[in-house]
Design a protein around this nucleic acid. Structure first.
Lengths: 330, 330
DNA sequence: CTGAAAGCGCTTACAG
DNA sequence: CTGAAAGCGCTTACAG
């Protein structure tokens, strides 16, 4: 087993002091030639700085914490994946912190040590105010995904717009009745605000078109077990050419499956628009509102990195606009 | 903001050397009185040892890594939750490491630094041989969940037994035809061996009862989108009183939902047994084979802790026996 | 731009 | 059982 190579080995090989090596590592001022020489040795010896020594000495940790709720949704995994990949490109590590229990939340809030191990923290689709408080006093920069806060960098999707687009797509077919399949959220660690923004956009456009969407046309779905099938069944059989907005592709999938067992043709016997554009949606022919998941994850990573380098950079609020993906169901 | 308290502060307050404090922290030999005195000061000052200093100095990290595949299943979250809770009780931290990409697996295999941050690693439902190799050379103790390996502590469920029980339950109703809904796994980082063990047990009992289960009675389901509804539909409508073994409760849920739209009564028009006993199963009236998820997670934590304390303890192979939960569907 | 030195907070032989 | 000391691998003023 190869003896572990330390900063001292590099220094000796490159004929410089350890301080200089540290400076090329951390972007201090070093002459171009020595920098290159040191870099060369680092590569040759496959040197990796010991993160713990770094942290002890008060430097950067090269890590960013990614906090997200207990979601079994494709969305969060894709988000995490692109986030992690982007970070990796900059030699940063992702510390995965799922909020799966009150205990974990509590620990995060009380154990100062925990947060000290990262240079920044990203919180995705978590209702910030009810979990970390109105203005969490993290020592690290905080980046928010699907949440808006004046004091922090935020990345959001224009959900309202997406909802409006969904309505427009459905309206084209001049259906008689509209329905929405919405999440019924009870877990205080999971945000559902953005889902209601989608719904509001949807409802607004419908109203403009003269259709006053009745509240009892909302079908509430459990995040994990989906919408009650009998309700969906009822809509599909009782109404003529109904239009359905599934606020998440998950729910749209169920509708499609039920329809197939009924022999109902999407885009003809009923109309359906989802939200997300999950992997299966293409094959399933689902017309949906796509949010750029991968871009969001990558952007979060980039903003975190920028913020780490420059704590005083102006706060950045990014809003991604979802796009319409027209396929067979509407 | 309170100045951070270090081991030196404790030493001074307790009138001992830092070495002594370290010894009470790490279980070295200290007289009972001084130990108590030190402990008292630690409590009063709310001292928490800096993990990085610890690691640098070559001590324990008080962390265990939990590696699991990209599963959006209830099972893994429950497992992780109980694991984390148990560890927490011993003042240990869980390092959550989901295997969501090849990149993450590669990093785990190549970056020696990563593994050094934990005292032990637990790998859950991952095919060890195809991911880490026949005999991974981790420096840390390795504990396996749902995988068998002579050289490591393993925790398994008697899946074969569970499958047999499922068959017995179904057989009671003397159905004419049997079906199974099985996972179709393509992701090499997700183990499905245990699912086939269940199936084998199932098939075996059926054969003993004179029913030679035909392979084309297996319905393959995608882990994320579930079984194709039209197939389930077909079984429910084409056959008289069919018996279905869903190898995961997820799949059973779909069957129940489809049946409800068809007006078919479980336990009468068809028979259904699941596996897992997920949260919704009780309310859903699902008869299922329950595996003690929480116990498995807790056990994994305890074995890890034991192994950390005593690397030479004999290898432990634990096998949990699933239990039958009789409800309405069979 | 660069080297030598102090210090980050611990652990672990080493003497007593 | 216990204290003083060395060392873990870095970073960051401090002088030059």
């Amino acid at each position: 087993m190869a003896k572990k190579v330390t900063i001292r080995d590099i220094a000796q090989q490159a004929c410089v002091g350890v301080g200089t090596v540290s400076r090329v590592l951390n972007g201090g001022s070093v002459s171009k030639e020595t920098r290159e020489r040191v870099l060369k040795v680092i590569n040759e010896l496959g040197y990796r700085p010991n993160p713990h020594a770094r942290m002890l000495a008060g430097g950067k940790t090269n890590r960013v914490m990614f906090i997200f709720p207990e979601m079994r949704n494709e969305f969060h995994w894709r988000l995490l994946k692109s986030f992690d990949l982007t970070l990796d490109g900059y030699d940063y590590q992702t510390v995965v912190y799922p909020l799966i229990s009150d205990n974990r939340l509590k620990k995060l809030r009380s154990d100062k040590q925990l947060l000290k191990e990262v240079d920044a923290v990203v919180v995705a689709t978590v209702p910030l105010d009810t979990t970390f408080g109105k203005r969490p006093d993290f020592a690290q920069p905080l980046i928010l995904i699907e949440w808006v806060h004046e004091d922090y960098d935020c990345i959001n999707v224009d959900n309202e717009y997406g909802g409006r687009k969904a309505a427009e797509l459905l309206l084209e077919h001049q259906p008689n009745e509209f329905f929405a399949i919405q999440s019924y959220e009870t877990n205080p660690m999971i945000a559902d605000k953005h889902l209601w923004e989608r719904f509001n956009g949807f409802k607004k456009v419908l109203l403009e078109a003269g259709y006053d969407f009745p509240d009892d046309h909302i079908i509430y779905a459990d995040l994990f077990t989906g919408p009650p099938h009998d309700k969906v069944f009822e809509i599909l059989t009782k109404y003529d050419r109904p239009a359905i907005f599934a606020l998440t592709d998950n729910y749209a999938l169920i509708v499609l499956q039920i329809a197939s067992t009924l022999g109902k043709k999407p885009g003809k016997d009923f109309f359906l628009v989802g939200f997300d554009d999950q992997y299966w949606a293409r094959e399933g022919g689902l017309t949906t509102i796509k949010q750029p998941v991968e871009e969001i994850g990558a952007k979060a990573a980039e903003i975190a990195l920028k913020r780490i380098r420059n704590p005083d950079a102006p706060i950045e609020h990014v809003k991604f606009v979802p796009t319409v993906v027209r396929r067979l169901t509407a």
